[in-house]
Simulated assay, not measured.
Amino acid sequence: MLGPSRLQAAAYEIVAIGSSAGGVKALLAVLGALPVDFPVPLVVVQHLDPRHDTILADILDRRSRLRIKMAEPDDVIGPGVVHLAPPDRHLLVHPGGVLSLSASEHVKFVRPSADLLFESVAEVYGPSALVCVLTGTGSDGAAGAGAVKSRGGTVVSEDPETAEFKGMPQAVAKAVSVDLVLPLDDIADALVGLVEGTRTL
């Protein structure tokens, strides 16, 4: 059980992560390095092939100290739990940390969409939203990062120079003033520092 002082210290209320090509390896690096007492919930969009049942949650769960699960409708997010968007469903966060899944149209040719997740997080959490864009092709996440910035939230991006696929990190850098651009191996520590208020931008 997390102590209330740890929770009250959190400078952010949620971390949302978007990734695509190369993202499984990147998520293993980030989620695998976060501590068991990470004090806020995480929501993740990783583009997955909708034609196959995914074992992504199982793979990540074995390598992370956090609890990792596929998001289900009406799940309520909580500290130390990672909710993954299932294949072919958009993941949205609503007031009170309630999740919903949507089969609405593809956004920029993808479903789930990091843009839609980030936009919902921005709307609910405003300046308490922290989003992170990892490796991937295309530009998913850039518009959502803009929504987060417009409401006072924080955007972290993997350095395009070290990302396996540069498209998503480059797109977000063109779209907004990214608060932190970091090599993959530095992202987990940065997320911990930002959330706990021990790191400034």
Rank of each mutant, 00 (worst) to 15 (best):
M1C: 11
G3D: 13
G3L: 15
G3C: 07
S5R: 05
A9T: 01
A10P: 10
A11Y: 06
A11D: 14
Y12M: 01
I14Y: 05
I17L: 12
S19L: 08
S20F: 02
A21E: 04
A21H: 04
G23F: 03
V24D: 08
V24Y: 03
K25I: 15
L27F: 12
L27P: 08
A29G: 02
P35L: 03
D37S: 03
D37L: 01
P39M: 07
V40K: 09
V44Y: 00
V44H: 03
V45R: 07
H47F: 01
H47I: 01
L48M: 13
L48A: 09
L48V: 05
D53E: 13
D53K: 11
T54G: 07
I55Y: 12
L56Y: 02
L56C: 03
L56V: 10
D58G: 13
L60F: 08
L60R: 04
R63L: 10
R65L: 06
L66M: 00
L66D: 00
R67C: 09
I68T: 06
M70W: 09
M70Q: 14
E72V: 11
I77M: 15
P79T: 05
P79E: 13
G80N: 05
V82D: 04
V82Q: 07
L84N: 07
L84Y: 02
A85T: 04
P86C: 10
P87C: 09
P87D: 11
R89Y: 14
R89P: 00
H90I: 02
L91M: 00
L101S: 09
S102E: 07
S104E: 14
E105R: 01
H106Y: 10
V107T: 06
F109K: 15
V110C: 11
V110Q: 10
V110W: 11
P112V: 03
L117H: 03
E119W: 06
S120N: 02
V124L: 12
Y125V: 11
Y125E: 12
P127T: 14
V131S: 07
C132N: 02
V133N: 03
L134S: 02
L134N: 02
G136Q: 01
G136H: 00
G138M: 06
G138T: 03
S139M: 01
A143G: 02
A143R: 13
A143D: 15
G144N: 10
G144E: 12
G146I: 06
G146T: 09
G146R: 10
V148T: 14
V148L: 12
K149R: 15
R151N: 14
G152K: 14
G153W: 12
T154E: 04
T154S: 02
V155K: 05
V156L: 07
S157M: 01
S157Y: 05
E158L: 02
T162P: 09
A163H: 07
E164R: 15
E164H: 11
F165T: 02
P169E: 04
Q170C: 09
A171K: 04
V172A: 05
A173T: 06
S177A: 11
S177H: 05
V178S: 08
V178R: 07
V181S: 12
P183H: 09
L184G: 05
D185A: 14
D185F: 04
D186L: 08
D186I: 01
L191D: 00
L194Y: 04
L194N: 06
L194P: 01
E196I: 10
E196D: 14
E196T: 15
T198E: 14
T198F: 13
T198Q: 05
R199L: 15
